[in-house]
Design a protein around this nucleic acid. Structure first.
Length: 558
RNA sequence: GCGCCCGUAGCUCAGUUGGAUAGAGCGUCUGACUACGAAUCAGAAGGCCGGGGGUUCAAAUCCCUCCGGGCGCACCA
């Protein structure tokens, strides 16, 4: 149990006693007992605002209530609490005895890789869908953000005890894909000296030429001069397969893996699209107008109704997306999380409408909108357009600054904060990027471990270690942060905000470096050495655990 | 014009879901290696939390309004 929970229970108990004895009228209410960690300028481990919350109900000044609670707390919990103080408008500040904090070292030691994981058994089944880029070109930098965040979020939810399924929705159907095939087809003909104009709005990136060249190398003039009608399907299928492979590889070298790659085309083949529309029609959420088929999304709060089948008989993207989400919902997940770029946020209302139209509560789907990545080079904006072929790929960035640095960079910002990615800065900073600050701390501790081994220090059974020797302020600070880790997991998971872990890591690394600089870990005093090795070993474990959630490696040397 | 997001130190960003005197990194200035890794540490300077109203014991945080920026507003995806 983390210490803040312990504190909360103590407060509730004190409240109950006070209430039993008529000193406080209202009965204990866990929701009113907020335990927070005060700012560093406040000399206390925890603070609670319960007295201020109670003041209006009790009709008494908050300090008076705080005084009452303080009396009971001091009476009941003398063994655990160093002191209880009143402050400001009605805070109750609590400080634990140091040996309370030292317990966390034994917990980390015992739980190892599992420390921080919450096993309170909420165990929801959650599906996270992210990246899901069109297979019409390599991933660009912006996709890197969704990849990093989606992956870290999935890991985080797993650490919080949920069962997570990661999925990539491959839009391998529809107009854009055909356009890709047409672009490659045209380029192929051009390469073989047969002038075919590029399609309007076609894809023009260098990768289009490369794909065409490879086809020319492999199939020679087999398709030269043939009409698009005749062989477009071949070009489309081929470039689709190749691009999908490239994307998989880009993600894989970025350290991102999915449990499933879901094909949009398969929804048409299996009849799932038709079935989904039939269901909506049966519920009277579809109607025909002006030759098109419309989804009555306004019924669920959307601005206007949306077309699912166009006048020309083709289905829109929404049709297959409804079928896709219907499939996901039918798989029985407790929660679906979609991570989308801000350029798609206008789409959320109709998707939420679809979920409801299919008979599920709106809350079953949670769409996280990520603000776009603005790419700059030396402060100058870099245009990113897939069709113009003028963009920096995720692969370029990963090759340039490294996977860990790129991941960490993407995870240093809140998802809804617009983000500027300066390529020159990322390159130049590659050696002073914050990620190295954290990794260095980890590597340093590994080095200490090696050093201890070389010097023949034999580690005792943790239960035998004299923890009371850990009394330096920096040591207590470290232990307090370690104790916080499970709570961090819980709060970050609940808020769906993995970026909090990066800030935690930076803070923990900072305290560690400071400690390391001030105090020797291995010394002539064997008892002290044992205690300190246990401490830094725990720090190392927690760092590794947090880094693993982020998908960043925890190197033993660098 | 309408909708969503953002506006916090020179720059890039946090801010424990409404709490105490608002924080960090980079950059700038000053210092610390004959010891476990200096990819490190210590100190200094730097703020009308975009402006204005409101809600209450308490607002960077919630509501309204204006200003500025991003993204949407397709029978594209």
């Amino acid at each position: 149990m983390t210490k803040d929970r312990l504190i909360k229970e103590m407060i509730l108990k004190a409240w109950e006693r006070a209430s039993d004895e008529g000193k406080i009228r209202s009965r204990p209410d866990p929701d009113k007992v907020v335990v927070e960690i005060p700012k560093e300028t406040v000399q206390a481990d925890f603070a609670t605002t319960v007295a201020m919350m109670l003041a209006p109900v009790e009709g008494r000044p908050p300090r008076e209530i705080a005084q009452t609670l303080q009396d009971y707390l001091q009476k009941e919990s003398r063994a655990i609490l160093e002191h209880v103080q009143l402050a400001g408008p009605g805070y109750i500040n609590l400080t634990l005895k140091p040996d309370q904090w030292r317990q966390v070292l034994l917990e980390v030691e015992a739980q190892g890789k599992r420390f921080g994981r919450i096993e309170i058994g909420k165990g929801q089944r959650i599906q996270v869908e992210f990246v899901s880029a069109n297979p019409t070109g390599p991933l660009h930098v912006g996709h890197g953000r969704w990849a990093a965040v989606g992956n870290a979020l999935a890991n985080l939810l797993e650490a919080a005890g949920d069962q997570v399924h990661r999925e990539y929705y491959n839009n391998d159907s529809g107009r854009q894909v055909k356009l890709l095939g047409l672009s490659v087809y045209a380029r192929y003909q051009q390469l073989l000296g047969h002038p075919v104009p590029d399609p309007d709005d076609g894809y023009r990136g260098g990768y289009v030429t490369e794909m065409a060249q490879r086809l020319a190398d492999r199939y020679g003039e087999k398709f030269r001069g043939r009409t698009a009608d005749d062989c477009l399907e071949f070009f489309t299928r081929h470039s689709l397969e190749e691009m999908t492979g490239v994307i998989r590889e880009d993600l894989s070298s970025f350290g991102i893996a999915f449990d499933d790659w879901f094909s949009e085309a398969s929804l048409y083949q299996s009849g799932a699209v038709q079935n989904a529309l039939d269901e909506l029609r049966g519920k009277d959420y579809l109607y025909e107008k002006e030759g098109a088929l419309w989804f009555r999304s306004t019924h669920f709060g959307d601005d206007k109704d949306r077309v699912v089948r166009k006048e020309d008989g083709e289905f829109t993207y929404l049709a297959s997306d409804i079928a896709y989400h219907r499939d996901k919902l039918a798989r029985g997940f407790d929660l679906l999380i979609d991570i989308w770029g801000a350029d798609h946020h206008g789409y959320t209302a109709r998707m939420e409408a679809a979920v409801q139209a299919l008979g599920y509560p709106k809350t079953r789907l949670r769409i996280l909108i990520g603000q776009l990545v603005k790419l700059v080079r030396n402060g100058q904006p870099v245009p990113m357009s897939k069709r113009a072929g003028e963009f920096v790929t995720l692969r370029d960035v990963v090759d340039e600054v490294g996977k860990d640095a790129a991941l960490f960079f993407f995870l240093m910002r809140r998802l809804d904060s617009p983000m500027e990615f300066d390529l020159e800065l990322a390159k130049r900073q590659s050696n002073e990027n914050p990620v190295y600050y954290v990794q260095y701390a980890h590597a340093r501790l590994c080095s200490v471990g090696r050093q201890a081994e070389e010097q023949g220090v034999r580690l005792k059974d943790p239960e035998q270690v004299r923890l009371e020797l850990l009394a330096e302020p920096e040591e207590l600070k470290l232990m307090k942060r370690l104790d916080f880790f499970p709570r961090l997991i819980e709060e970050s998971a609940r808020a769906l905000e993995p970026h909090r872990l990066t800030f935690y890591l930076l803070e923990l690394a900072g305290i560690l470096h400071n400690y390391y600089f001030k105090h020797r870990i291995i010394s002539a005093n064997n008892d002290l050495t044992q205690a300190r090795l246990l401490l830094v070993g725990a720090v190392r474990t927690v760092m590794a655990n947090a880094l693993e959630i982020l998908g960043v490696t925890a190197p033993e040397r660098m």
